[in-house]
Amino acid sequence: MTRRRLLALLGAAPLAAAGWFGWARGRNPYYDGPPSDHFDGLRFFHPEQPPDKSPIQAFRALRLAEKAPWPENWPSPFADRPPPEVTGPGLRVVSIGHATHLIQAAGLNILTDPVWSERCSPVSFAGPKRVCPPGVAFEDLPRIDVVLLSHNHYDHLDTATLARLVARDDPRIVTALGNDVIVRADAPRARVEAHDWGDRVELGHGVTASLVTACHWSARGVTDRRKALWTAFAIDAGEAGRVYFAGDTGFFSGAHFRKAAAEHGPFRLAILPIGAYEPRWFMKDQHLNPAEAVEAFRLLGAEHAIGCHWGVFRLTAEAIDAPAAELATALRARGVPPERFRALRPGEAWEA
């Protein structure tokens, strides 16, 4: 039985996301560089990162935990056809679904973690299937100048979508160390570049993106856990303001949010994950829950926030609408007006 078929039979993307057996010894197929304060010569790590969960713990959390029911279809009431570009002080962000957003500022069109595929999985016939179509049809996308890839989990790095973008627009693809190898395997013509935490990348039109620390991990299969780096991004779009895109992250002490605010703030907008957080004993090391997202919003000092990573792909145990409901509760508890932190549905836009 092939590795991909085994992944599919056992749950595909959730299995890959758990990184089962990913602590196996061996070479790093993605990155060969000197050790650093977050790379030990084989694997990447975050200083606050706890020991990896075991295969048994992963199985308990992802296959045996009691799960709230999800509908097979949960269409969004929104759909968007973005303008060709946004210039001047304008900033426009539309949720396409999960962690995929179109950020338009300073004449640039930037996509985060683009996924238009029906499943986030190494195979087309199994794994988490979207219950809501993308909020922007692929054909309605304006020219894409830049893609920002946070890490290599299948719900964030979709090589089929990237290949379509490369064929249509040939965008620059900016990602963290090691992920360039994964992209080129399926899109050999891709203009992909890999950077380390702390690097600042000029995107054009005076816009920059800095790679900033996140508390997460990576895996595409059963032997490559933490062999590619994961990252958040701090985007400086000049007069349009600064945007923080978290990708995926746990909270831990919150130091990475404080550091991002100190080094790259003030932020006009933070894009923060609010879903895929139950069961908490397992998911807290890798994903924010809504209350933690509100605290991250506070630590970042952002004017506004968008909640993402919910309501599209069934990855964990909570109900499909629980992230939005719990976000509303957390905002009330903190005395934050709900218009400052919105849980966008696909096709819903934030503009300023």
Rank of each mutant, 00 (worst) to 15 (best):
D224K: 14
G198W: 10
K227G: 01
Y244L: 06
A228H: 11
A237I: 01
S218R: 13
A246V: 01
A228F: 13
L229T: 07
R242E: 04
E193T: 10
G221E: 09
V243S: 00
A209M: 04
G241M: 01
H195G: 01
H195I: 05
Y244W: 07
E202Q: 11
H205Q: 13
A246S: 04
A214V: 13
L211K: 06
E239M: 11
L203N: 06
R191I: 04
W230C: 14
D224A: 12
R220S: 14
A234M: 00
I235T: 05
G238E: 04
L203H: 04
Y244P: 00
L203I: 06
C215H: 15
R225K: 15
A209W: 00
A232H: 08
A246N: 05
R242G: 03
V207G: 07
G204M: 08
F233G: 06
A246C: 08
W230L: 12
V207P: 01
H216V: 10
A209D: 00
V201Q: 03
A240D: 02
G221Q: 10
R220I: 12
D236C: 08
G241A: 07
T213C: 11
S210C: 10
L211F: 05
G204T: 06
W217D: 15
R226L: 13
V201L: 06
Y244S: 02
F251H: 05
I235W: 06
A234G: 04
A234K: 02
D248E: 12
D199I: 09
T213S: 15
A214Y: 08
A228L: 13
I235F: 01
F251W: 06
G206I: 05
W230T: 11
A209L: 07
G241N: 04
G247H: 01
H195Y: 14
H216T: 10
V243N: 00
A232R: 05
V192A: 05
A240G: 07
D199K: 12
F252H: 13
A237V: 02
V192K: 06
